[in-house]
């Protein structure tokens, strides 16, 4: 269930005066079990990259292998690929269409060749997994749910096809603080049993620092950094150049360092607190 990308390039409207290099000779690997964060400013190529991962954009230059499916082969098995790689786009609630929640969630599994019975079982399981009251929502129209509920239904619609890899494009965009927290906890809880690998695009550095165990930084279609978040946020020179923000915990530790107060590179508030306390020991 690994992903291997080598020398991938992609150009929009090639050979015209309007051509735009979206991906420029990108190579990386994601092993099974990783939670990969992808960060970069708007237009850096993040979305184009993830659309390659399940064949929504056909590879023109370079190689991609996802779960042993070679995407550069002449006729890759796209159905199988897309059932293995679940993709959740930005504002996924805008893809809901069926007259009931249940039918909408069944759409994916039925497309991927599940029997009616298997699809319904998968849909029920997925709706429970995302924390919705199944009996309460199954026959309701997805359009009358609240924003947070709609997004959960959309996620269930992806999970119902039982993907092994989950790709999320800004899953918390537009949610209120509690909704954000719940969404991130949900994503964390999903990983394990059936979903092995999670890839997440986010503009929120606090989320990335807290949840990712590896980070790709994109800038102008290139990967300019590929490392563990702690290593990434220890070297802050890059953040000044790309205009990305530091997570708060890292920003605080950096400011403290400038005042001669070293507490390492904490990635979340608990680490921040522990490190401060360790350093302050005795000055209570």
């Amino acid at each position: 269930m690994s992903i291997k990308v080598t020398n991938l390039s992609f150009i929009y409207s090639p050979k015209t005066p309007f051509e735009k290099v979206a991906l420029d000779n990108i190579s990386f690997e994601i092993a099974e079990g990783e939670t990969m964060g992808i960060i970069g400013s708007t237009g850096s190529g993040k979305s184009t990259l993830i659309q390659h991962l399940n064949g929504l954009i056909r590879t023109t230059k370079g190689n991609i292998t996802v779960c042993d499916i070679d995407l550069t082969s002449k006729r890759p098995n796209l159905k199988k690929l897309r059932s293995l790689v679940g993709m959740l786009f930005q504002y996924p609630e805008y893809q809901l269409f069926a007259d009931t929640v249940f039918k909408d969630v069944c759409f994916g599994p039925l497309n991927f060749g599940f029997s009616q019975k298997a699809a319904e079982e998968a849909a029920e399981e997925a709706l429970r997994l995302v924390g919705l009251n199944f009996d309460d929502v199954r026959d309701r129209s997805p359009f009358e749910l609240s924003g947070g509920e709609k997004r959960r239904v959309a996620i269930a619609g992806v999970l119902a096809s039982k993907p092994k890899i989950l790709v999320l494009d800004e899953p918390t965009a537009g949610l209120d603080p509690a909704g954000k927290r719940e969404m991130l906890d949900l994503i964390r809880s999903l990983k394990g049993d059936s979903i092995k690998t999670v890839i997440m695009i986010s503009h929120n550095m606090d989320e990335i620092a807290e949840y990712a165990d590896r980070v790709l930084v994109m800038d102008n279609g290139k990967i300019i950094k590929d490392s563990h978040p702690r290593a990434l946020f220890s070297d802050i020179s890059m953040f000044k150049e790309t205009g990305l923000k530091l997570p708060h915990s890292v920003n605080i530790s950096t400011l403290l360092r400038a005042r001669g107060f070293e507490i390492g590179t904490p990635l979340n508030i608990n680490e921040l607190l522990t490190n401060i306390c360790d350093r302050m020991e005795g000055s209570k």
């Binding site: 659309q51 399940n54 929504l56 159905k79 897309r82 059932s83 679940g86 993709m87 786009f89 996924p92 805008y94 893809q95 809901l96 269409f97 069926a98 759409f107 994916g108 039925l110 497309n111 991927f112 619609g157 992806v158 096809s161």
Partner: peptide, 28 residues
């Protein structure tokens, strides 16, 4: 793109089937 990622295909089957395939695009 979102519906393709959920396994929808828009270029197979007869005319009626294809028109039906576009419902998940037209309704949203």
């Amino acid at each position: 793109m979102a519906q393709k990622a959920r396994g929808a295909s828009f270029d197979t089957g007869g005319l009626v089937k294809r028109i039906k395939a576009y419902l998940p695009v037209l309704i949203p």
